[in-house]
């Protein structure tokens, strides 16, 4: 992104994994209250996700926990004989990144971006796109995180959305170009329907094939070539819940943020500059609130949902899920679990 001073990000070209990774308990760990409570955890990288879901739902002893369950598979897990569904409020957001750098449509105008936000029915998206396992988004920061400003999601108001878009001067016949990946195709199509119906404009959706993802990521983070989308439906995370701007807002909108699409936003940079050098926790939290309010009020993205993290877990595993990680220190198994019945 920049050579001097250096600003860059990593892009995965491939992820090699061994077939299995076996973790054994450290009996001398200092935090005995926390754990470990399991003697052994085996990560199986040689079992495809779909097969793993079959094994946790329909059998015992081969797979106990499957992460990243799709909402489409949630009911299957819920009704299975052997597994339980765990839905965890996670530090995750799905949003439409707005390419404010296009020159033939007014995406640099907040009225256009607000129109997009008011064109979408988030309740329907939660229901039909995420099976109910998500919350409507009001900005980037989820309500269960630190620095949440208390904002409400933009109302679904097609008439006002259409008025705002016309006021901003959306060009006659200019189609809105939306890109996404296969994982987000369903909610993206729902969003596209709403935009089409509410705004009365043509909407084109393209799903980037897996073998073209790396090239697409390069284009987004390098910011050299024009980006081939107006909206990129995108999922992002945080690694803590305390001050989301450090990892979420900064990456999405910051001058050195890999996912910024369009020019830097001066007011945002000013706030982030104060945020990064503030050592008082209370003031830091106030700045977190101000930053999320700014991106909401400027509609810097089309804020969609905060999806839950879904896990399929064997019914004899007492699973403790995390908002920002997948750790198993507190997870334990009861006496009916196959590994204890078998003396494991």
């Amino acid at each position: 992104m920049r050579a001097e001073p250096l600003a860059c990000t990593w892009l995965d070209t491939r992820q090699d994994r061994t077939d299995k990774v076996v973790l054994t308990a450290n009996h001398d760990h200092w935090n005995k209250e926390r754990g470990p409570r399991l003697e052994k955890v085996v990560f199986h990288n040689d079992i495809p996700h779909a097969e793993a879901l079959n094994l946790v739902c329909d059998a015992e002893g081969e797979v106990d926990i499957v992460t990243e369950v799709s909402p489409a598979d949630a009911e299957r897990v819920r009704s299975s004989e052997h597994a339980r569904l765990h839905a965890i409020d996670a530090m995750r957001v799905v949003l439409g990144l707005v390419n404010r750098g296009v020159t033939d449509a007014p995406l640099d105008d907040a009225r256009t971006r607000r129109a997009f936000n008011m064109a979408v029915d988030r309740d329907r998206m939660v229901r039909e796109g995420f099976g109910g396992y998500a919350y409507p988004a009001a900005g980037v920061t989820p309500p269960y995180a630190g620095g949440f400003p208390g904002t409400e999601p933009y109302p679904h108001d097609p008439a006002e959305a259409k008025r705002l878009l016309a006021e901003a001067g959306w060009p006659e016949g200019r189609a809105l170009r939306i890109a996404t990946n296969a994982d987000l195709e369903v909610p993206t199509n729902l969003m596209a329907e709403d935009l089409r119906d509410s705004l009365g404009i043509e909407v084109e959706v393209s799903v980037t094939p897996g073998d073209q993802m790396l090239a697409g990521q390069h284009a987004l983070v390098e910011k050299v070539m024009p980006l081939p989308f107006d909206l990129l439906v995108f999922a992002w995370i945080d690694l803590t819940s305390d001050a989301p701007p450090a990892f979420m807002h900064g990456e999405l909108y910051g001058e050195t943020g890999p996912f910024r699409a369009g020019p830097p936003v001066e007011a945002f940079e000013n706030l982030m500059g104060k945020f990064a050098t503030e050592v008082d926790p209370d003031r830091l939290n106030e700045l977190s609130v101000e930053i999320d309010k700014l991106v909401y009020e400027e509609s810097l993205s089309l804020f969609l949902v905060y999806p839950q993290a879904l896990y399929a877990v064997n019914k004899n595993v007492d699973f403790v899920g995390y908002a920002t990680t997948f750790e198993l220190a507190e997870t334990e198994v009861n006496e009916k679990h196959w590994s204890r019945r078998n003396g494991g």
Partner: peptide, 29 residues
């Protein structure tokens, strides 16, 4: 991320023994 962390107290006297095995499939990147 913040400028403050909550202290976590070590439970020196804990006696729970780790037991059991779980098999995990985690495709998350």
């Amino acid at each position: 991320m913040t400028g403050q962390v909550t202290s976590e107290v070590a439970a020196e006297g804990g006696s729970r023994m780790p037991v059991g095995t779980v098999n995990v499939v985690d495709p998350h990147p």
